[in-house]
Design a protein around this nucleic acid. Structure first.
Lengths: 257, 257
DNA sequence: CCAAAAGTGTTAACCATACACCCATGA
DNA sequence: TCATGGGTGTATGGTTAACACTTTTGG
């Protein structure tokens, strides 16, 4: 079986292809049913859920590595992704794998470079929930979305990474436009507001939010309105990508209440 | 000579003590003569100036490693230090050392782990210029301060790291109190303002600055005034460290013009 | 007493907040 | 026609930016 061979090789000689002692982990945020979600993997040879992560190829940039991980898990093309922090305390827990289980597959895992100490670079990504096709990796048996506020038991310090990414995201909200990639192309103002409220964890005033967000000048209102609602139908909006990009680079002295 | 022995051992077996492929680099900012300075090392076995940096011990946290580097170069105790970004493009230039020169010292450097590809974690530190005792490391022949805006030829991508740290520092200025550690214990309002202006690279209004900075409530005015000035003498101030610390943790919705 | 630089105060413009009002729609 | 939720407008209070005036000191 080629698969088994591949894993055995990774344990034994992966360090020839990848950098040692460094990894990347991605916190992939999505927005669905008015809730902020993260994409997690259910480990096969260990307990608990884990963040999608990987190693950095010797000829590969570290951003590229993160993009690769992200694409393999989501099958997305265009992605908003950013490094936000490094985690590397000396007591940082290492991956606790079930060596017995691996042994039954004929894989010798003890003493592998993969159980050396790792410093991991945390990346956070914002993706369109509906476009994602969650795909487990070779060490996982499942790949699923979880509500950020209702996480399952996590491996190692991954719960900390998520908490940190979330607080970073909250911070970003105050001086970067956020929404493109997290929302479908067309969205209504209440949907955008709900996104902000979910990330911030508190209610915002409908009317002030609209004024402020429109003031940034990155939204285009469409003629079309959302159909099938039992009240006044809201307009659809889309991001003016040119201006959105500009605002991303320049930042915006922008404060949400 | 014990020194030579030490270096030879580092090249040959350093990877047994340190993590591979990861390093830390410190951008150490100081403030002197109304100018923002960085502390740099003149490489001995290579061309150009370099940031103080080092490796992460296998039993050492990465923050600890940065603190160690910083203390060895400055001999300072209490330090404000923060990780700000990781650098790890695949084409990241590696240290170009003069292997010939090393060979005359009986040190075989070719093929060493030290010339493998490195991902480096950038730390920036704010220190009191007057308290620093610049000290070269084993690979350097000098350790000096340079004006941030007038850098000498730099090794590898270190000029980029500095530029990045500076823009990060500017950003920090907007939502963190900065000044403690960068200034002497007692300082005048114009001195503090000059610090802000230097970091931001533009003039600020004297009166508005004073009002705003006092509004944060982290300063204590002393009775004493600066002596020997040919005009109205400014008061001395010092930071209220308890409140300063609080503001550091909480952040402050604070915007300089 | 003059120049220089510090301390203190004032005003107008701007922005955030809170809230009122009207409009559209399905039930 | 009513309940629900969206679109638009406005009054208020606080904050920021710009600027005037006074005070202190050495030369």
């Amino acid at each position: 079986m080629a698969f088994k061979e591949e894993i055995r090789d990774l344990f034994a000689r992966g360090h020839e292809r990848y950098l040692r002692n460094v990894s990347v982990d991605c916190i992939i945020f999505g927005f669905h049913d008015s809730a902020l979600k993260v994409l997690l993997l259910k480990a096969n040879y260990a307990d608990g859920w884990a963040l999608p992560g990987g190693f950095i190829g010797r000829e590969e940039g570290m951003d590229e590595a993160a993009i690769r991980v992200l694409q393999q898990r989501t099958h997305l093309g265009d992605i908003y992704l950013q490094q936000f922090r490094v985690f590397g305390q000396s007591g940082r827990p290492t991956q606790k794998m079930n060596h017995e289980k691996l042994k039954t597959l004929g894989i010798k895992s003890e003493g592998s470079w993969m159980f050396d100490r790792f410093i991991t670079i945390g990346y956070y990504a914002l993706v369109d929930f509906n476009k994602v096709n969650p795909t487990p990796d070779e060490f996982s048996i499942a790949c699923e979305w979880f509500n950020v506020y209702e996480l399952p038991p996590m491996m190692m310090d991954h719960a900390d990474l998520i908490a940190d990414a979330l607080s970073f995201l909250r911070h970003q909200l105050n001086y970067r436009p956020i929404g493109n990639n997290l929302l479908p192309e067309k969205f209504t103002m209440p949907e955008l507001q709900k996104l902000y409220e979910t990330i911030l964890g508190r209610k915002l005033d409908r009317r002030n939010f609209q004024r402020k967000i429109l003031g940034v000048g990155i939204l285009k209102r469409l003629e079309e309105r959302k159909p099938g609602v039992a009240h006044k139908a809201p307009y659809y909006y889309k991001f003016d990508l040119r201006k959105y990009q500009k605002a991303l680079e320049a930042g915006m002295g922008f404060q949400i209440q």
